[in-house]
């Protein structure tokens, strides 16, 4: 039954194509319509599709996917570098982040208390890594920076679309709220597999070759005398 479910549409298509081809050829034999009329029909159709092609390139230009944004090897390299930085932070010594991550948003809070609690966010759908640096001075301010690496889906950079969390300091607690959910819908067009075969993007349906979901973390800089507790890693 399941096999029939899959085969049936193919059979319907085959019957349609066979029927149309046979009918058109047989009617040609019987001279239902004059050859001149048929030439006009073929010529007219070719004109329509040529005009459509010109219009689709000129009046309806599509956004071009820059398939050279990241190649498979570059995606792998990027992901490895992200993991190395996150792991270094977990180990207490954060490597240079600027090469891989960009600071997406920074918050500065004036803070004159002695303790700061960062509650565990594990039960939420959003729980970024949190790294804390103790500043060499007591400047009465807490700085929070949201770092994010590139988020690329199918060769398209969505880093800008992905939002930053909301950070609030309430009394002695720093609260991290998940960013607003973002849902992106996009359409991909290609002329067909014969055309992709000779280009770099061989399989239009496979996004994995050019995709990386990216990583993110929060870097919190606290005054020298503030004692931090909760879910975080101290880094140097």
């Amino acid at each position: 039954m399941t096999a029939l479910f899959f085969v049936l549409p193919i059979l319907v298509i085959i019957v349609l194509v066979v029927g149309i081809s046979t009918y058109a050829s047989k009617s040609s034999e019987k001279r239902h319509s004059s050859p001149q009329k048929k030439k006009w029909i073929v010529g007219g159709y070719v004109t329509v599709i040529v005009v459509a092609t010109v219009l689709s390139y000129t009046f309806f230009p599509a956004k071009k996917i820059d398939s050279t944004i990241m190649h498979r090897e570059e995606v792998k390299k990027q992901e490895d570098a992200e993991i190395a930085i996150i792991n270094s932070g977990m180990a207490g010594k954060l490597l240079e982040v600027e090469r891989v991550f960009t600071d997406k948003k920074t918050w500065t809070f004036s803070y004159n208390k002695r303790d700061l609690l960062i509650p565990n966010n594990d039960m939420q759908e959003y729980s970024p890594n949190v790294f804390v640096i103790s500043k060499p001075v007591d400047d009465n301010s807490v700085e929070v920076t949201h770092y994010m690496s590139k988020m690329i889906v199918g060769g398209i950079d969505f880093t800008e679309e992905k939002g930053s969390p909301e950070i609030l300091i309430n009394e002695e607690t720093l609260k991290i709220y998940a960013p607003e959910p973002v849902e992106v819908t996009f359409n991909k067009f290609t002329e067909g597999f014969a055309f992709n075969q000779f280009s770099e993007s061989k399989d239009m349906y496979s996004l994995n070759n050019l995709s990386t979901h990216g990583s993110e973390f929060l870097l919190i800089k606290v005054p020298k005398s503030v004692k931090v507790s909760g879910a975080f890693n101290y880094v140097k």
Binding site: Y126, F186, E191, G192
Partner: peptide, 11 residues
Amino acid sequence: TFSYKVNYYSG
């Protein structure tokens, strides 16, 4: 919190 949907149109 980020989700995406891709529709494919091909020849």
